[in-house]
Amino acid sequence: MGRLSVNLLGIELDNPVIPASGTFGYGYEFAELYDINVLGTFSFKGTTREARFGNPTPRIAECSAGMINAVGLQNPGVDAVISHELPLLKKCFNKKVMANVSGFSVEDYAYVCERLDAEEQVGWLEVNVSCPNVHGGGMSFGTSPEAAAEVVRAVKAVTKKPVIVKLSPNVTDVVAIAKACEAAGADGISLINTLLGMRVDIRRRRPVIANKMGGFSGPAIFPVAVRMVYQVSHAVKIPVIGMGGVASAEDVIEMMMAGATAVEIGAQNLIDPYACKKIIEDLPRVMDEYKIENLKDIIGVIE
């Protein structure tokens, strides 16, 4: 085991760096740029029962140190993911992948998770109960402890692989929701999904984004993410994956000190397709600088 390695729910990762869902497709497009086997793993594009086109365009708005997206879970649906995307991924990625799942009903979540649980390359299921961009689904499950717990129970009943619940920051008490997920049998928590945001085009006097609101991500949200990772990781016994605005090796270390076992990187991939590779290459140097022998030693060192 190298000094960057961490254990995520029984699977050893070479390093804690994980491209976040929705910023890395199904992996193979980034494999044209570099060998994606350097990654700890990655979380693939949020997958639903049926194919989805997503929201109307414009779906993207720029912000200071960040961006808003309102893609709305565009994906080819679980059948096509299994028949088309995963075989392409297998050719360029020889590690376990994290399957990101979204739904519009408890049954949807259970169905898609059960299907993906049967795929050999899937190492973990990341259940997204926090997408801010779809109505009647996604975030509505992640904003109440009872609804989130119900999804967790339904998914756990039909799967064998570790279930990680991806939580929304758009709630009054994220700790209560994390605890409810833990009590319902979740194996891990990942957070934060995007913050609900909005921009107005003052020349045209209308929202920049066709769907009006969207998910705000990027370095601007990093302090919010660190705070929530700290709060949740100190309140639950299951591992926490930290994400939200991570853009450098220093950010990875900060997130881990706050309590994260592994770290997802999202928006940064969109402005620098080599971001994760650079961060992994940079980690040993930054660890030396801060006298960190092994990354696993710093997880949650902040009391």
Binding site: G22, T23, E29, F53, G54, T57, R59, I60, N69, Q74
Partner: peptide, 8 residues
Amino acid sequence: FGACMGCS
């Protein structure tokens, strides 16, 4: 470059 699905 095709990663975010923002311009579909």
